[in-house]
Amino acid sequence: MADKKPFESQDVLVVAKDDAIRRALTRVFTNCGATVYCERDGHEALKQQRKLRCRVIVFCNDIQRGGAQWFAHQLRVKNIADSDVLWYIGDKPITYMDGYTSRPFKPVVLVKAIAYNLAVVDDLKKAE
């Protein structure tokens, strides 16, 4: 039997303006078993997240409308459709985001970090 893929049956929302980043992340997350949705700005991404309730959101630093700080604030302070993992692609940590990966990056490095954070969230939900 084939090994279970790390994002099997998970929804991932990728928020990036750069087509190359969106394509690369879509390919790598799809290969890991996820269903990937893409948005090009923070406001649209928030609308989409309200509908989809994705467990993972990857937010890129090239977004100008509805930037990273605003987006994280909406999700995690205003508690609008929060995700389990909110990850940033950029060069510095963003308050309320679970982690960040500096550019340029290898997609596999990003996916690995997110997968482990997701596993931690799952473990915390399990009773001892």
Binding site: A72, R76, T95, Y96, M97, D123, L124, A127, E128
Partner: peptide, 19 residues
């Protein structure tokens, strides 16, 4: 240890989200 693990988990779950 099981008590410790459960307590750490409680603390982690109660932490505000983010790094």
């Amino acid at each position: 240890y099981p008590e410790a693990i459960a307590t750490y988990k409680k603390a982690l779950s109660a932490l505000p989200k983010g790094m």
